[in-house]
Design a protein around this nucleic acid. Sequence first.
RNA 1: GUGAUUGUAGCUCAGUCGGUUAGAGCGUCGGAUUGUGGUUCCGAAGGUCGCGGGUUCGAGCCCCGUCUUUCACCCCA
Length: 455
Amino acid sequence: MQKPNLPKGTRDFGPEQMRKRLFIFDTIRRTFQRFGFQPLETPSMENLTTLMGKYGDEGDQLLFKILNSGDFAASLSELDLATGSKKLTPKISEKGLRYDLTVPFARYVVMNRNALVMPFKRYQMQPVWRADRPQKGRYREFYQCDADVVGTDSLLCEAEIVLMIHEVFRNLGIQDFTLKINNRKILAGIAERIGIPGQEGTLSVAIDKLDKIGQDNVLIELRERGFSDDSIASLTPLFSFTQNNTTNVLTELKQWLHDSITAQQGIKELDETLRLVNQYGLIDSQVEVDPTLARGLSYYTGAIFEVKANAVNIGSVSGGGRYDNLTGAFGMPGLSGVGISFGVDRIYDVMEELNLFPTATGQGTQVLIIPFDAEARSVALPLLNQLRSAGITAETYPDLAKVKKMLDYANSKAIPFVVLIGSEEVQTGQLSVKNMLTGEQQKMSADSVIELIKK
RNA sequence: GUGAUUGUAGCUCAGUCGGUUAGAGCGUCGGAUUGUGGUUCCGAAGGUCGCGGGUUCGAGCCCCGUCUUUCACCCCA
């Protein structure tokens, strides 16, 4: 006999976990829908040609690849085997599991470009897979909840994302979060300013770690990556304004990066976005402008968002940004879009750690019918039907077991009411209803049972 | 991909220096109680000590490999 186990980095979700997870999904879905986003689902697997090259070299490595069906080795030669995995892979695998929801979305938009009404707003809540090593807040299979709008470059979309993020986290009960916002153009401007134009990618990777490793180590890393002492020295102003309020940060950025047209554009966009958010009347905005915020994904071109739950050390629980040319790789250039992704699994971990899940709210069975013998079923089964028709979650114990056993069952499932049916109840039609919390028991008609449980 | 770490009953964990038949709590099942739960009492079942190899008279304990868990790095939700 073999011991069953799960693939590394994957998990089962039992009833109790699912109740909590569904709470998160429902909360996010309600917000997405209220903002006018339409649901979309795409296949778990995509052609590797769709996925490869969209997430960088590292991303390509983290893709789960699917072995071709049938005799995948049929056309292989000794030579192929000798060339190593990199060249061998495309010969034996042409599909992979999706790595995020944005690229499949871009693929969908391109394939349906003529049918879609622009701007197109969609939301998507599905699992994604990454073949990296699991650790805290990191799984090989996890869910993302994405909302994107494509076909407009209006900053109103950025503003609405800011609003949605606030709404979702507040509805979840996560009050202590920070929405960090930056703009890729500002990062580009910084790169210009310190004399390394075009290298903002490398720069970003390092300064993104500021929170984690501190200023000194960031500078050390930049030096290791080949940045000159002059460049590093001129970076100093970047570290001085992280604590200020949004307007101050923007003003200081404007001064520091005054000779970069790109940076000025990014600052203007950020400024405008925040102005729009303000017009919406967002109360107690938790937005923080953070010029050191970078994010890894290479396709962002404008705004960048990231949400951190302040009380928990788990990385970001949500992230997104604007991309100007995501569909370009699929032959449809010039389509701008902006999106946000919520990481359900990390949000779950945060809420669990902070004890933020609401206590069970009428999710489970409300009443258990307990027939003492086969005869009692002639009353129990119609009653079940009646209760369910009235919208009450009701069940009976399928075996004719001892009463003790059935009451134990009710207890362990936290069922608040039981209806006991024996020969006496069959004869009189008056049912014995027991409140499992108080122990109180009384006789009443079926209609009264419904009334009692419904309130 | 790099570096650590974990694994003993369904669950949480003890297990001494390598030494007889591997323990506890919780849970499960049965009984005290054949129409009434939670509390209590009694009893029982449940183990290839992750897996494979090695050292030894003897391995849960030491060594090697492997899988798994957790964590950090890289990178990321």
